[in-house]
């Protein structure tokens, strides 16, 4: 018999409708972390969501926020325009790994480097989910996808890009952290990180970035449990969790 463990309360901004996500997918958890942070900080009515292209394209169906859909990869540019037009609003992008780290690499790098006072939630599941499991820029070497059927070859295609490390190196970044949501302990840490990212935006400190390591059981051809386990055994060793930049860290200590 399983026991239900209540980790948090149900935030109002989460709409009461079933998601289209596959069983075991972490998008729902990541959505919820955003919903909790915005609710706890009292930002819901003041926030504009910038969606992207990928499985999370329908995020506006699940978060009850003013929202815009952006072209593939361009969410940081769209968010820049919104923030410049409405500097008093809280603006965030929610992007997957294909969107952010491949077609949208230029936009995320320059948005971060300019120090746009926005937040990016980057959900990295090492695969293109919506289009059916093709190789992504974060696909691990050896990982099989529909466009790397023998496993990703470092020789031909390079290796998985570690975005948080790159983002942390840019001047305009206030906060960069990598989290996972595969265990309750990690969810708790992720909760704090997402909240902190929005807090930094409220304080006007600059660009804040949270990478969430996430499952894609369907395209990984795994059960939800096995996918959850892969986060621990394969992803975290290559994509270490932790804070890579925090402009307030020294003052706190």
């Amino acid at each position: 018999m399983t026991q239900e463990l209540r980790v948090t309360n149900y935030p109002q901004v989460l709409t009461d409708r079933p998601t289209h996500y596959c069983p075991g997918c972490h998008h729902g958890t990541a959505h919820r972390l955003v919903a909790e942070a915005l609710t706890d900080l009292g930002l819901v009515e003041n926030t504009i969501l910038v969606g992207s292209i990928g499985c999370s394209v329908f995020i506006y169906n699940y978060l009850s926020l003013d929202a815009i859909e952006s072209p593939h990869g361009r969410a940081p540019a769209v968010a820049t325009g919104i923030k410049r037009a409405r500097p008093d609003k809280i603006v965030f992008t929610y992007q997957g790994d294909g969107d952010l780290a491949s077609i949208g690499m230029a936009e995320i790098m320059h948005c971060a480097n300019r120090g746009e006072n926005i937040t990016t939630i980057f959900v990295n599941n090492t695969v293109y989910g919506m289009t059916g499991g093709q190789m992504a820029p974060t696909t691990l070497v050896g990982q099989k996808t529909t466009t790397s059927p023998s496993g990703r070859s470092q020789e031909d295609t390079g290796s998985a890009i570690r975005m948080t490390e790159i983002i942390a190196s840019l001047g305009g970044v206030a906060y960069a952290e990598r989290v996972a949501v595969n265990t309750i302990k990690n969810i708790k840490k992720a909760q704090k990180a997402v909240r902190k990212a929005f807090e930094y935006q409220v304080k006007g400190l600059g660009f804040s970035f949270v990478e969430v390591l996430a499952t894609c059981p369907t395209n990984w051809h795994m059960t939800p449990l096995a996918a959850n386990k892969r986060i621990e055994t394969e992803m975290i060793p290559y994509f270490p969790l932790g804070t890579y930049k925090d402009v307030l860290a020294k003052e706190e200590k």
Binding site: S70, R74, A77, V78, G81, I82, R84
Partner: peptide
């Protein structure tokens, strides 16, 4: 606000965002 964007692609998408407000 003036932004010299990283590309024409980005500049046009910034326009999309600002104008949507």
């Amino acid at each position: 606000q003036f932004v010299q964007a990283e590309s024409e692609v980005a500049a046009a998408n910034m326009l999309l965002g600002a104008a949507a407000c």
